[in-house]
Every structure is written in structure tokens, then in C-alpha cells.
């Protein structure tokens, strides 16, 4: 975990150290999102819900990729909210060449675009593929695994809102235990999604030994931008899994999107880490630890855990054990190094 530590030990600026911009830092170190010249890869007028985490996460990621490639970028999109809310015919929000084909084939299309660029001798044009958790962990998983296995020169970004949101909040293999969705209703002895199911795609991606895998969150812009920039400096298959709260699907207030993402990482349920060639190389320590309860409570999809009568307490404790296991596994509770910026 040493190299991330080194990057975090930078000069000590107090005021607004963790904010988007910091006018006390020199230009070169400032964030893309703080810049007046940022590309706004997804421009205004898109139809995402109020407070959409996915709209925000995608702009963060693609603006960073645009800066890293000096605008030489093509984006491929799986079906899902991101595709639908940005491109209602005949309008588009994208400020980057963009292609959509099917729900399950974004990784394969991206591999094809990258191959085409190579054949045309335009390898400076880079390719980003993006999809939701459903499109990534379920229906698109075969194509994605193939893209990894062939080490195709694509950065695949998964925007994880933990369900099939575009079609009305159905469970995916990224839906966490106990979460209520349209297909895992909060009824019966085990309300919501059951324990012991689902998959961890970042770890599966690591098992392909690809050059770079990372998790990121809309709650930590600096970390996210740094990871995208790092990914774009590498050739071959890369994977970034970004945590993007969904106010509508999670039953949270639209203004709480970033706060909830922050709580997910600070309680340990969504660890922020990165790996190279199958080995974990760094993780972001928790700054202000909170119990999982603080993360769960503001979301209606977990409301049944707090109802009288059920065994919510025991189930919250079980979620807490999952968080604690993450904290131990990824080394999240160490003396917090000072300030990423």
C-alpha cells in the first residue's frame, strides 16, 4: 500500500483541503472538475433524476479521461440509465464521440473500436467502455471477461448503483444483502435481497491479472480522477468500478447522494482500493469511521431493517461484519495519512 501513501503525503493546506478545488495549490495539481476548461463530457439538459450519482460519476470519469488523452477519446455505452438519459432521440448530451449498441456487448464493441483504431494506425485515440452494474456484472459479463482475458486496450468503467435502475430497480448481482428492490421485496422472513449471493467484480477483474483495477466513488473526486488518469496512462485492459448512489432506487434524498457515497466508504462497505496485475497496491484509509447503520438509515431500501419486530438488529450486525471484514482485508483503518490534496 506504499505508493498511494506516498502520493497522499503532500503539502499541508488546511482550508478546503478535500474540496473540489483548492486555490492554494498550484495549477497543475488542481482537479479537472475545478477547472473552467473541463470538457463537461455530459452537458446540461440530460434527463437524469435530481441528484443522480451516475450522471455525476460519468462526468467525473470521462472529463478526467478527456484531459488525460487530450480529447482523443471514444466512449462506448451499454444500455442503461446513462445511455437513456443522455440520448433521447435526436438529442445527445455527449461532448465526446459516443456509441451505443446493446445491453450486454459494450466490452466487445469497445474491443472492436480499439482494434479498428489500431488497424488505422490511430492508436493515440483511446477507448472507454461504460455500463451499469447490471450491464457489467450480469448480462455483459461474458464479453467483459473476454476483453480482460485478451488484454484489449480498453478502460471499462462500471457505474454501480446496485440494481437495474433504468427498468425500475430490479436486483442485480451487485445488489447488497437486505436491499429492497422490485424483485427482492421487503417481505417474508428474509426481507430484501438475501445474504450469501452476488459477486465482487473488482476482485474478479483482478483474477484476470489485468494491468489495472480500481474502485472509486463520487464521494472522493480527487481519488477518482487520479485513478482514471492512472488508468489512461496504461495500455491494455483496465477496470474501474465507481460507486454511484441512486436517489430514486435507494429511496434517499437527492441532496444526500455524495453524503451516502461517503458513508458507504467510511463504514467499510465500499472499500476504495486499487490493484495492478492481480495484486492490491493501495487503499484509501477511513478518515471518520461510522457504523454501517449510519449509511443504511437514510435509505428507504433498508428501512425494514429499522422496523420493530423483525430481526433487523441481527441483520445489521451481519452487514457490519461484512464491513469489518473489508476493513481488515483492505487495511482501511490505519493512521490516516494527511490529505490527498
Amino acid at each position: 500500500m506504499s505508493d498511494m501513501t506516498a502520493e497522499q503525503k503532500v503539502k499541508f493546506y488546511q482550508k478546503g483541503t478535500f474540496t473540489v478545488g483548492n486555490r492554494l495549490v498550484d495549477q497543475a495539481r488542481r482537479s479537472v472538475q475545478g477547472s473552467m476548461e473541463r470538457s463537461n463530457a455530459i452537458t446540461s439538459g440530460h434527463r437524469a433524476c435530481q441528484g443522480c450519482g451516475e450522471a455525476l460519476g460519468a462526468r467525473y470519469a470521462l472529463d478526467a479521461a478527456m484531459r488525460a488523452t487530450e480529447g482523443q477519446l471514444i466512449a462506448v455505452n451499454a444500455t442503461g440509465c446513462l445511455e437513456v438519459f443522455t440520448t433521447p432521440y435526436p438529442e445527445t448530451s455527449w461532448q465526446v464521440p459516443w456509441i451505443h449498441s446493446l445491453f450486454g456487448n459494450a466490452a466487445a464493441v469497445a474491443s472492436g473500436v480499439a482494434a479498428a483504431m489500431r488497424v488505422k494506425g490511430r492508436e493515440q485515440v483511446r477507448v472507454v467502455a461504460q455500463g451499469g452494474d447490471g450491464g457489467t456484472t450480469d448480462i455483459g459479463f461474458g464479453c467483459l471477461s473476454g476483453m480482460f482475458e485478451r488484454n484489449d486496450d480498453v478502460l471499462y468503467i462500471c457505474y454501480d448503483n446496485e440494481a437495474y435502475m433504468n427498468t425500475g430497480v430490479q436486483r442485480s448481482s451487485a445488489t447488497p444483502p437486505t436491499a429492497r428492490t422490485a424483485t427482492t421485496p421487503a417481505v417474508g422472513p428474509e426481507p430484501g435481497n438475501v445474504f450469501g449471493t452476488g459477486k465482487n467484480l473488482p476482485l474478479i477483474a483482478m483474477a484476470h491479472n489485468i494491468p489495472y483495477v480500481a474502485t472509486a466513488s463520487v464521494s472522493d473526486l480527487h481519488d477518482l480522477e487520479r485513478k482514471v488518469e492512472k488508468a489512461m496512462a496504461i495500455r491494455g485492459a483496465r477496470y474501474i468500478h465507481i460507486f454511484v448512489p441512486c436517489p430514486l432506487g435507494w429511496g434517499s434524498a437527492s441532496h444526500d447522494t455524495i453524503r451516502i457515497a461517503r458513508l458507504a466508504s467510511e463504514c467499510g462497505l465500499f472499500p476504495l482500493f486499487e490493484a495492478e496485475h492481480g495484486e492490491i497496491t493501495g487503499s484509501l484509509p477511513i478518515r471518520r469511521k461510522v457504523p454501517v447503520e449510519e449509511y443504511l438509515r437514510p435509505q428507504k431500501r433498508f428501512a425494514h431493517l429499522f422496523k420493530d419486530g423483525g430481526d433487523g438488529v441481527a441483520r445489521i450486525a451481519r452487514l457490519q461484519r461484512m464491513a469489518d471484514a473489508n476493513i481488515a482485508r483492505f487495511g482501511l483503518q490505519r493512521e490516516a495519512e494527511e490529505t490527498p490534496l
Binding site: 482550508k15 478546503g16 474540496t19 473540489v20 478545488g21 483548492n22 472538475q33 475545478g34 473526486l221
Partner: peptide, 8 residues
């Protein structure tokens, strides 16, 4: 002028 509103 921390840019937070502009960024988020």
C-alpha cells in the same frame, strides 16, 4: 471559492 458546488 473551493469549487465544490461547481464540481458536484
Amino acid at each position: 471559492e473551493c469549487d465544490n458546488c461547481y464540481g458536484v
